[in-house]
Amino acid sequence: MEIILAIAIGVLAGSGIWLVMRPRTYQVIIGLSLLSYAVNLFIFSTGRLGPRAAPVVRAGEAGDLLRYVDPVPQALVLTAIVIGFAVTALFLVVLLASRGLTGTDHVDGQEPEA
């Protein structure tokens, strides 16, 4: 399991980084989304894999890490997903405004000089 997740994280991050370095704004926005999947999965995986139950305890029970997975990375990733959405939205609108103003979708606001 670990090796699959590690490869997944690596591929997502590599694809995201490749796109983030591209010249078109749309490539960058897709790249940031892929990169955020990778980072979220990485943070999530710091809680380690393994056959444990979701962090939902029974009423009146004091949970422990032997039976339940780590809830802290999950709480972190949950907020990261929502903020990631907000960042994507903001970036999309900036991208659109820049395209409207400059007439190009190049990240520098002007086509590169040939």
Binding site: G10, G14, L49
Partner: peptide, 13 residues
Amino acid sequence: AGGGLALLAYAMM
């Protein structure tokens, strides 16, 4: 970078 992150993730897990 992707490979490095994969390695790091595997080592950590």
